[in-house]
């Protein structure tokens, strides 16, 4: 497996969707290629850091205001 092939498997790998033989190849590649090992680890961290941190705040005050505006708008619509 080349580095490019490795990258093309990343998505399915993270989703746990690669077949056992491909999984073995990915793992073997990472073992011998320190660059891809880092890419794997830091890409995983990139995803989790965006998933776990609320990048944009959604304060209760904004939520209530938006919610009320949405419902008001819809109440004027045809059903």
């Amino acid at each position: 497996m080349t580095c490019t092939e490795f990258l093309s498997k990343l998505d399915d790998y993270f989703d746990g969707k690669v077949d056992a033989d491909v999984l073995a190849e990915v793992q073997a590649h990472v073992k011998k290629c320190s660059h891809c090992e880092v890419v794997l680890d830091t890409t995983r961290k990139t995803i989790s850091i965006y998933r776990e941190n609320e990048v944009y705040e959604f304060p209760a005050e904004l939520r209530e205001r938006l919610h009320a505006a949405i419902m008001k708008k819809c109440s004027k619509a045809k059903v």
């Binding site: 660059h35 880092v38 680890d41 850091i49 941190n53 990048v55 944009y56």
Partner: peptide, 26 residues
């Protein structure tokens, strides 16, 4: 194409406070 092959150590959460981290992510 990946160019930077440095590890991330320590973890970003240990390196930056919450608001600074949020700023970086945005």
């Amino acid at each position: 194409i990946p160019r930077d092959f440095a590890e991330w150590r320590p973890n970003p959460e240990q390196l930056y406070g919450q608001s600074e981290l949020g700023e970086i992510l945005r």
